[in-house]
Design a protein around this nucleic acid. Structure first.
Lengths: 135, 135
DNA sequence: ACAAAAATGATAATTATTTTTATTTTTATA
DNA sequence: TATAAAAATAAAAATAATTATCATTTTTGT
């Protein structure tokens, strides 16, 4: 059954291998390493395909690109207000259960929690600018 | 001091009057009702300006537009997985305090919580399609 | 009143994403 | 295995949202 085409499989494998929250073009660049002539549209199409399946989700960072993520629902995110990087984080103690229950009780299909702040990298390269939009 | 230009003021007033989470072009259309020759660029510029001040925040709905919101931090959001509408919601009991404390403790500057599901409107116009991307 | 700084409108440019179309690959079935 | 139908693809064009540019206007501080 669900035997995907080679390109389609590649997109998922690349997503699973990348330990980050790539934008579509990052996935594209990564795919090209093994499939040099894959098209960007194919990456977009397959990310949308997997999103519909629930295998891939979208996170929204501080830049204006969509970021994609495998394994949603298991973790929340820290989003750097300076560089836009998205990092995984375990839910704070007890919170996951609380939100799961609440969600079920109210009939929501899912939830997303993000914390905003400087990532370690930007923290050490401090220049007092805690805002992407600054020039 | 902070005596803004008339256009800049208008953008904020419109935002405060609109009881929704408008995209930039929605704010633009609303502004044009009183200032017919205001420019879309001015709306974008001033939304960015207020965002930097922390007076306006961005929410992300299910469509690919940025949605803007005044009074962040007081409420969380329900995002309709069908029409993309963003609605305000009070934080579930005790949750706000918990998250505020956690945030302060960990040194994050803010957080955002969203629940996903069908809005009442889409619930009643049921057609089994719980996904914007469906055709 | 006047010079300097900031904001604006109009439009062009950019960027991300989606659509289109002709072609190729995959799938199902005979 | 051969073959017709369906699905997926590459490449490019189209679309849509946002940002940048620049000449002009408005605001600010003195």
């Amino acid at each position: 059954m669900a035997n995907f085409s080679s390109r389609r499989q590649a997109v998922l494998e690349v997503m699973q291998k990348m330990r980050c929250h790539p934008s579509a073009d990052m996935v594209y660049e990564e795919c090209r390493k093994t499939i040099p002539n894959i098209s960007l549209a194919t990456v977009y199409r397959n990310l949308a395909f997997y999103e519909k399946q629930g295998l891939v989700g979208r996170v929204v960072g501080c830049d204006n690109k969509e970021r994609y993520d495998v394994e949603m629902d298991t973790h929340c995110h820290i989003i750097c207000t300076k560089c836009g990087e998205v990092m995984d984080m375990d839910y704070p103690q007890k919170l996951k259960q609380y939100l799961d229950d609440y969600c079920k009780q109210e009939g929501f299909s899912k939830f997303g929690l993000s914390f905003y702040g400087l990532c370690d990298n930007c923290k050490s390269n401090q220049n007092g600018n805690d805002n992407l939009k600054e020039l």
